[in-house]
Design a protein around this nucleic acid. Structure first.
Length: 428
RNA sequence: GGUGAGAUGGCUGAGUGGUCGAAAGCAGCGGUUUGCUAAACCGCCGUACGGUGUAAAGCUGUACCGAGGGUUCGAAUCCCUCUCUCACCGCCA
C-alpha cells in the first residue's frame, strides 16, 4: 500500500512511475486523491462537532454535581449527536473506499528498475557456470525419474488430481535432502533464523503481503472459513510481526522457512506442463528480511547472493535477470529472478525470485519500528526471496547430472544428506 | 465439541455511566545530588488520523481500554455479536 501522504504531496511523480508498470494508474491515483480530499473535509466537520460534544459533556458533569438543571442542553446535544452519527458514517464509507483503492494500486518501481513491458524486456544481470554438454541425447526429468522410479505422476493424479507430484524412494529422499541442505546453509552459513510456520493463513495475512484482495483466484481457499493454504512461506513469515512496533535494535531480522506452497493456478490448467514444471503443490525454502529503509538495497543484493550460493554449491548453471517495470509482481519495488538451466528442457527455469517490497507490505500489515533517534516510528522494508524453490530445482538437477546410462550423479554437497549415496540408479 | 473465567498503555495492574487517554508500580529517557558501584529526588515517557505552521519544532482537534454494533446528552464502565487467551471436561496425532 502506498502512503497517502506521499501520493498527496507527489501526485505527478507517483503517476508517471506507476504508468511504467501499469496503464491507467493515473486514473486510480486521481480517484484516491479525490476521496482523500473529501475524507479530510468530512473529518474537519465531524471533529469540530465532536469537540463541542466533549466540551459540553464535561460541563454537564460539573453542573450535575452542583445539582443544577441540564435538561435544556440535552435538546441541542441530541441534535449534534445525530449529526455526528451521520457524518461518521460518511467518513467510514469514504475511508473504506480509499483503503480499497489503495490496496489495489501496485508498488512504485525502484529507481534502478529498467522500464519495460514484458518478460522479453528483462535484462540479464549475470550468468554463473556454463551449460553442460552431453555426448548422448539428453533426457528430460520425466523420462529420467520414470526410469529411476523417483516420481509417480499417475498415482498422484489418481489420489488427488492433475497437477500434483508424488515423490518416491530416492526421489523423496532427494527432495528432503535439498530442503535440509538449503536450511542448513541459510541458518548456519548465512545467519537466518529458521521458522516452521503454519501452512494455513488467514485473509488478513494475505492482505498484508498483497495476495489479497486482487489475487484470490490463485489461492486454495478452505471452504466455510477465512483461511487459505499458503501460496508461499512469504505470507506467514513476512506477517510474523504485523501490527507490531519493533525496536530499531531488533533489526535486521532474517528468517528462513521451508513450507510447501499451494497454488491453484487457475486459468493455467492444460498448458503444456507435463512433469514438475508447474504444479499445484511444490516445496520451497524462503528467505525473509525486515530491515531499516536505508539498509534495504544492500540487503537485497546480499539476499540474492545467498540464493545464488545454493546453486553454486550444487554446481548448476544459472543466470540472473532483473525484472522490468512491466513484469514485476504487484507489491514489489524491485525483483531479481534466478533461472536455472535445464538441459532436458533446453530452457532456463525460474527457481528464485528475490524481491524488495520496500515499505509497501509493512504499511499494509501495520508493521513499524521505533527509531533510535527519537524521530518517531517508520515502516521497515521487507524483502523476500526464494532460497530456492524445489520442483524446478529437482528438474534441473536430474537433467544436469544425468549420465549416458540414465543414472544420475549426486552432487557432492548432497551426499551426506543422501546417506552417502553417490548415484541414483534404478531400484535405489 | 461442552462449561467457566478473562482481554486496560513496553510489562504488572487499578478503575462499573460524567472534569478518564486512563491511578499506581516496574522498565525506559533526561536531569539533580552523592568522590566508584548502587541509591535518592525531579521531570519526561502510547499510537493513528486531521488542522495550523515555509520546513523542523511547536500549538491544537479527534479517535483508540481485544474487534464490530447498540443504549445514552455523555461509555474503559451497561447490552448484543464475534475473535482470541486461560482452566477443566470430551475427543484425538
Amino acid at each position: 500500500m502506498l502512503d497517502i501522504k506521499h501520493i498527496r504531496e507527489n501526485p505527478d511523480a507517483v503517476k508517471s512511475r506507476l504508468a511504467t508498470r501499469h496503464q491507467g494508474a493515473e486514473v486510480r491515483i486521481e480517484e484516491v486523491l479525490l476521496l482523500d480530499e473529501r475524507r479530510r473535509r468530512l473529518l474537519v466537520e465531524v471533529e469540530t462537532l465532536k469537540a463541542e460534544k466533549n466540551r459540553v459533556s464535561k460541563e454537564v458533569g460539573i453542573l450535575k454535581s452542583k445539582g443544577q438543571s441540564v435538561d435544556h442542553i440535552f435538546v441541542r446535544m441530541k441534535e449534534v449527536s445525530d449529526q455526528i452519527t451521520d457524518l461518521d458514517k460518511q467518513v467510514s464509507l469514504v475511508e473504506e473506499d480509499q483503503r480499497h483503492l489503495l490496496l489495489g494500486i501496485p508498488n512504485i518501481p525502484h529507481a534502478s528498475v529498467p522500464t519495460g513491458r514484458t518478460a522479453a524486456d528483462n535484462p540479464e544481470v549475470r550468468q554463473w557456470g556454463r551449460k553442460p554438454s552431453f555426448d548422448f541425447p539428453a533426457r528430460n526429468h520425466v523420462e529420467l525419474s520414470e526410469q529411476l522410479g523417483l516420481l509417480d505422476f499417475d498415482r498422484a493424479t489418481k489420489i488427488t488430481g492433475a497437477g500434483f507430484a508424488l515423490y518416491r524412494g530416492a526421489g523423496a529422499r532427494l527432495e528432503r535432502a535439498l530442503i535440509n541442505f538449503m536450511l542448513d546453509l541459510h541458518t548456519t552459513g548465512h545467519g537466518y533464523t529458521e521458522i516452521n510456520p503454519p501452512y494455513i493463513v488467514n485473509a488478513q495475512a494475505l492482505t498484508g503481503t498483497g495476495q489479497l484482495p486482487k489475487f484470490a483466484d490463485q489461492l486454495f481457499h478452505l471452504e466455510g472459513t477465512e483461511q487459505y493454504l499458503v501460496p508461499t512461506a512469504e505470507v506467514p513469515v513476512a506477517n510474523l510481526h504485523s501490527n507490531e512496533i519493533l525496536r530499531e535494535d531488533q533489526l535486521p531480522i532474517r528468517y528462513v522457512a521451508y513450507t510447501p506452497c499451494f497454488r491453484s493456478e487457475a486459468g493455467a490448467a492444460g498448458v503444456g506442463t507435463r512433469g514438475l514444471l508447474r504444479i499445484h503443490q511444490f516445496d520451497k525454502v524462503e528467505l525473509i528480511r525486515i530491515v531499516r529503509p536505508e539498509d534495504g538495497d544492500a540487503a537485497h543484493e546480499e539476499m540474492l547472493q545467498h540464493a545464488e550460493k545454493v546453486l553454486q554449491l550444487l554446481g548448476l548453471h544459472y543466470r540472473v535477470i532483473v525484472l522490468c517495470t512491466g513484469d514485476m509482481g504487484f507489491g514489489m519495488a524491485k525483483t531479481y529472478d534466478i533461472e536455472l538451466w535445464a538441459p532436458g528442457q533446453g530452457a532456463y527455469l525460474e527457481v528464485s525470485s528475490v524481491s524488495n517490497a520496500e515499505d509497501y507490505q509493512a504499511r499494509r500489515m501495520a508493521l513499524r519500528y521505533r527509531r533510535n533517534d527519537g524521530k518517531g516510528n517508520a515502516h521497515p522494508h521487507i524483502l523476500n526471496g526464494s532460497g530456492v524453490a524445489l520442483a524446478r530445482l529437482f528438474v534441473a538437477l536430474l537433467e544436469t547430472y544425468q549420465q549416458a546410462d540414465g543414472s544420475v550423479v549426486v552432487p557432492p554437497v548432497l551426499k551426506p544428506y543422501m546417506g552417502g549415496l553417490e548415484s541414483l540408479v534404478p531400484g535405489v
